[in-house]
Nucleic acid binder design. Structure first.
Length: 842
DNA sequence: AGCACGCCGACT
DNA sequence: GTCGGCGTGCTC
């Protein structure tokens, strides 16, 4: 190939051709914080390319070269034709994203105020966001202009007739310099070359001189060849031009054992019953032409024996199966242990039998192995998983596996909601109340809400499952927008746990436990039962203070106390990770009388040993389970009955069952109850019910004792006496009275800077500008105010709360406002972002 | 977001 | 005299 360098053919972009049947202008989304699409001319070496939206294009952008996504083709541009640049290369033979995917992502980008190009690129696995590995990008250094005007072909090297061509097509994109139309030969040269030649020739390429101008390789991605998936255009062979129209030999998703090796063990698996994927086109759009479902059939299930549905489950399964092929959201409102997963499995079996695909979203990585194991043991499906713990290569392969239509079930966390699934027929969002379904930075989308929108676009049912649904979802179910399915009974003989409030005012606490709770623990331990204690505070003590002068150990970067940890022995900020050695004397007055206030799980664990010397305890929090495999070891010990007391933070509340536990003690949730966030009570109730759900699954009924200093709190009363649904009804009434979601819709404009006044000034200006917009008529703006925990990692945060009764009106306002804010001059170091449907108020 | 251009301070 | 601070403006 290097030999061919001597004939590199370089063409400068042509001016408007005189004889064109129809001008092709490509509208490209660019991954930059810019809302608009950018117009480009097609590359010269792709005369008969099909310009399907969703293709990844390599484009010159400013002085950079970026990977953009084709969004449309038009004959007219608002920009002078002569100033349009050419696309450098088309990276896919067939778009990675279908029209439906583009529609979904574009909707999400608009709804969540994210620039389209950034939203699109974030929908791809990281490896596909980058220039392919066997793609060399050469930068041509500055030199004298080789041409002024005209559209004749220009030899690359000035004055010489030396032409250089890469064996599979080279191209160069000189660009106008200074915007005045004079071309320099500075720019990028992109070339692809085949695998075998990659390593051998690249170094030589970087030294090649062409006349007076040398080309050097700006970037070569050295990747082991056997790991590098072949871009489609190389499948045709070594000398084939990369972008020829005939793509028959270069479909990116064709079944090819050599290019799609078996997946890594433990991340996904092939089923021996895998269907022949060739009978499906991965790119057919929509499900309207899909084969009809056999109603009531159970093909696809491989082990039904022993799994008998109760009547509630049967009603749920029947209702969902009847809705296949149409958009219908379901709320599967089922208490812990009521068999929600079994309902999923029955409906999934139907999907698999019909040769369709299903998407299952779970909030956390930790929940994927459990669900994966259950699905795999029950369903003869090709299952693939997607979450952040996978290596980039595995992520790409699994993504392709789903996007090609070869996988019938995709099980994944949040980001899986954007993965193309050509035969999608069902979406499940498990634990729909979980906060981690909403991304908390950058593109702040809610995977649950995007899922509903996706089901609507596709025309398929969606199941939102939870034992503690969000008030938003419950409200939708109440209004009949979601079909409400109830699973009120626990499987088997298990009884639901009882919850009692324990007033701890004026009680002498030891290890954070009131005398009554200590008695009850002793009672259960004596009976050979297990006890679970919940404390949502890790570390030894949350505050260290000086008894002589009142000094309190705070974080130098945050408005937060440092937490004392004894193992390892550090003084730690839980917000920014700052640590310092534990002081032995007061840094302020040198007194040695430092005292700990409050207690975390570490301290309670220590105190439990003196309180219950005969009992073994296990502490489960993010500190004790930091080592790989440690969580599994502790959970296993708990489930075997090797420990009598389980102590932990909310890690305990997620997904794991402890059949031997008969008593749950919740030590202190008062802080959550009275937090500033209007969702705090809802969170607390969900946590209580989820923790309670860990207990008493066997024939022994579980009890929950909730220690509080506010036993009269109306929401606690509702929860204890009327259960979660009673709590939800009361909480919804409160939301209605205070005009909070779901009765209004919110957006939060957040701003932060190192300077304390800068964010507030910006927000004041933003509020002033908002008032000028006609769309602000039905908008209420509260603030600006410093955010809770205003100073974090040395930056001051403030926010402005936008409230509106109508989602549509809020959207219209945000669109106008966002455009306006982009133009506001930005003070030094200011960052701002809009959070639509914020989940946390800081 | 990058990246370049452009006009004012401390130094090879 | 230059290197470099980040303000401003643009990217098809």
């Amino acid at each position: 190939m290097i030999e061919n360098l001597s004939s590199l053919e370089v063409q400068r972009p042509a001016a408007a051709p005189e004889f064109v049947e129809a001008m092709v202008i490509l509208q490209v989304a660019i991954p930059a914080p810019l809302a608009t699409l950018f117009d480009y001319l097609p590359p010269l070496n792709a005369p008969s390319q099909q310009w399907t939206p969703g293709l990844r294009l390599l484009v010159p952008f400013g002085r950079r070269q970026l990977l953009g996504i084709l969004m449309g083709v038009t004959a007219h541009s608002d920009h002078a034709l002569a100033r349009l640049k050419r696309v450098d290369a088309v990276l896919d033979a067939v778009p990675l994203l279908t029209a439906l995917d583009l529609k979904l992502i574009a909707w999400a980008a608009g709804y969540y105020q994210q620039p389209l190009g950034e939203a699109l690129i974030s929908a791809l696995p990281t490896r596909l966001r980058k220039i392919p590995l066997n793609f060399a990008v050469a930068r041509i250094p500055p030199g004298p202009p080789f041409s002024k005007g005209g559209d004749e072909e220009v030899p690359f090297s000035k004055g010489g007739d030396e032409k250089v061509t890469f064996s599979n097509g080279g191209f160069c994109s000189p660009f106008s310099k200074g915007g005045r139309g004079d071309f320099s030969n500075e720019g990028f040269l992109a070339a692809s070359f085949s695998k075998g030649e990659h390593a051998a020739n690249a170094p030589a390429l970087s030294e090649k001189k062409l006349g007076k101008t040398s080309i050097f390789i700006k970037e070569i991605n050295h990747a082991p060849f056997d790991q590098s998936p072949q871009p489609p255009f190389f499948k045709g062979g070594l000398d084939a031009p990369p972008f020829e129209k005939d793509a028959s030999s270069s479909l990116p998703f064709e079944k090819d054992a050599s290019s799609s090796p078996p997946f890594e063990k433990g991340t996904s698996s092939y089923s021996p019953f895998e269907k022949d994927a060739s009978s499906y086109s991965p790119f057919e759009k929509g499900t309207s032409s899909s084969p009809p479902f056999e109603k009531g059939g159970s093909g696809g299930i491989c082990a039904t024996g022993g799994f008998i549905l109760n009547s509630d489950q049967q009603i749920a399964v029947t209702a969902i199966q009847a809705a296949l092929g149409t958009f219908q959201p379901f709320l599967l409102d089922g208490v812990t242990g009521s068999g929600k997963t079994e309902v999923y499995i029955r409906v999934l079996a139907q999907i698999i039998a019909a040769g369709q695909q299903a998407l299952v979203i779970v909030p956390e990585i930790g929940l994927t192995p459990q669900l994966q194991a259950r699905f795999s043991s029950r369903l003869s499906a090709t299952l693939t998983v997607l979450h952040s713990a996978l290596t980039p290569l595995t992520r790409e392969r699994n993504w392709q596996h789903a996007a090609s239509g070869n996988a019938s079930i995709l099980l994944g966390t949040r980001s899986a909601i954007f993965v193309p699934l050509p035969r999608l027929a069902l979406i499940v969002v498990d634990e729909e109340h979980d906060q981690s379904l909403k991304q908390q930075d950058g593109f702040r989308y809610s995977a649950r809400d995007v899922a509903v929108r996706r089901a609507q676009l596709v025309g398929c049912p969606i199941i939102l499952g939870s034992a503690t649904p969000t008030l938003e979802t419950l409200y939708n179910a109440q209004r009949g927008r979601y079909h409400w399915l109830h699973l009120p009974r626990r499987a088997g003989v298990a009884q639901p746990p009882t919850i009692t409030l324990l007033d701890i005012r004026n009680q002498r606490l030891r290890a954070g436990l009131s005398p009554h709770l200590r008695e009850q623990i002793a009672h259960e331990l004596a009976a050979g039962n297990q006890v679970l204690l919940f404390l949502n505070r890790r570390g030894y003590a949350p505050v260290l203070t000086c008894h002589a002068c009142g000094w309190i150990g705070g974080c130098p970067r945050c408005d937060a106390r440092l937490t004392l940890h004894l193992n390892p022995r550090r003084f730690w900020c839980h917000h920014c990770g700052f640590t310092r050695p534990v002081p032995t004397h007061c840094p302020s007055c040198k007194s040695a009388d430092l005292r700990m206030l409050g207690r975390g799980t570490e301290r309670v664990e220590e105190e439990l040993q003196t309180l219950f010397p005969d009992a073994t305890s296990a502490r489960i929090d993010s500190d004790s389970t930091r080592r790989k495999g440690e969580l599994e070891r502790l959970l296993d010990a708990a489930q075997r009955g090797a420990v009598q007391i389980l102590l932990g933070t909310q890690m305990l509340a997620k997904g794991h069952d402890f059949p031997g536990v008969t008593l749950v003690g919740i030590l202190d949730l008062d802080g959550v109850l009275y937090a500033t966030d209007f969702r705090a009570p809802e969170r607390a109730a969900q946590l209580i019910v989820q923790v309670a759900g860990r207990a008493g699954r066997a024939e022994r009924r579980g009890r929950v004792i909730l220690q509080t200093r506010h036993p009269e709190h109306p929401l606690l009363q509702a929860l204890v006496h009327k259960g979660y649904s009673g709590f939800a009804a009361a909480a919804l009434r409160e939301r209605q009275e205070t005009e909070f979601p779901p009765f209004t819709h919110l957006a939060l404009l957040r701003a932060d800077a190192t300077d304390e006044t800068v964010p507030l000034e910006f927000l004041r200006e933003a509020k002033r500008l908002a008032a000028q917009l006609p769309a602000s008529e039905h908008i209420v703006i509260l603030g600006p105010a410093p955010a809770p925990l205003a100073r974090r990692v040395g930056r001051h945060h403030a926010q402005l709360l936008v409230q509106c009764a109508e989602r549509m009106l809020l959207q219209r306002f945000l669109n106008q406002w966002g455009a306006m804010l982009q133009k506001v001059k930005r003070s030094k170091g200011l960052h701002w972002s809009v959070d639509v449907d914020p989940q946390e108020m800081f």
